[in-house]
């Protein structure tokens, strides 16, 4: 199954739920208040958020009025363009050596994402080492162990309850001595409003910067597509703490659309690099803005 069809399948259920009402609207070919009201509902249902939805609708209204659009095809095209203009479409360019730091709130799918990510780079012929710095959650290390053996990569971990910073330190030392291309660091899920946990994250970040300055460092925030407007706050606070480079949007294989990334893009220039579309090791795709937009509407 190609990348295209896979993500498409993941987004299909999404489409079915709201696509119908919208198709009806397009059929009518009248783009008055009803049309914009319906569009508003669709965007809001996709978690785009109230303010961003207004922005998108105003932009579309302006463009369509200016160009006197009256055909369904044209309207569809205009809508997609406006939505695309409200996203950052950019792929992750990795140079070696590099360190990918994976962060996020509890239960978004960090560990699973790491398994998939490791597998992805192994397939590209890279050597990968995973550092299990989630020393807090019960059995997090064991879970990561399973994923690492699935992906066939090395794992450095310490005991539960030990200092996560020391895991990071050891992982980097090991990667240096063995010339490993990519180090992926798993961290404990933490709610962004927990001060001390965010301090711990800053410390981990500092250690990477200090111990491995020659490596490219990529800080990825994992977001659950099911999350609503709180995702904006998550991005903001994690970015404040350790400067986030990009987003991984997980669980897009459900019925949630992850429209909150529009709201995020409105606040910060942050690209979505990957999307998670299932529990299999291959279920991680590079983000494709075009397909994502089609999934939302």
């Amino acid at each position: 199954m190609g990348l295209f069809s896979k993500i498409k399948e993941g987004l299909k259920k999404t489409k079915q739920s709201i696509g119908f009402a919208f198709a009806q609207l397009f059929k009518k070919g009248v783009f008055g208040e009803d049309f914009y009201d319906e569009l508003e509902s669709i965007l809001l249902s996709a978690d785009v958020g109230s303010a961003t939805t207004q922005t998108i609708i105003e932009q579309l209204r302006e463009d369509m009025t200016r160009d006197k659009i009256s055909s369904a095809d044209k309207a569809n095209q205009y809508l997609k363009e406006v939505l695309l203009a409200n996203l950052y479409d950019e792929q992750l360019e990795l140079t070696t050596p590099s360190v990918i730091l994976i962060v996020g709130v509890n239960g978004v799918g960090k560990t699973t994402t790491i398994g998939k990510l490791a597998h992805n780079y192994v397939k590209q012929g890279k050597s990968v080492l995973v550092g299990g710095a989630d020393t807090f959650r019960a059995a997090a290390g064991e879970q990561l162990d399973v994923w690492c053996s699935r992906a066939g990569v090395r794992l450095i971990k310490h005991e539960e309850g030990s200092d996560p910073a020391s895991v990071v330190y050891d992982a980097i030392a090991s990667a240096k001595s063995k010339n490993t291309d990519i180090v992926i660091i798993d961290t404990a899920g933490r709610l962004h409003n927990k001060k001390n946990l965010m301090e711990e994250l800053k410390k981990i970040n500092r250690i990477i910067e200090r111990e491995y300055p020659q490596a490219q460092q990529v800080n990825l925030l994992v977001l659950d597509a099911t999350t609503g407007q709180n995702a904006v706050s998550q991005v903001e606070i994690f970015d404040q703490a350790i400067s986030i480079d990009g987003i991984v949007l997980t669980k897009l294989d459900g019925t949630a659309k992850g429209g909150v990334v529009f709201a995020i893009a409105g606040e910060k220039e942050l690209p979505v690099y990957f999307v998670g579309v299932g529990e299999g090791i291959d279920d991680l795709m590079p983000f494709d803005a075009q397909e994502f937009v089609e999934g939302v509407i």
């Binding site: 809001l44 996709a46 978690d47 099911t226 609503g228 995702a231 949630a256 909150v260």
Partner: peptide, 11 residues
């Protein structure tokens, strides 16, 4: 999850 968005009702 308390942070769930619009999809909460579907789920």
């Amino acid at each position: 999850d308390a942070m769930t968005g619009q999809d909460a009702v579907t789920v």
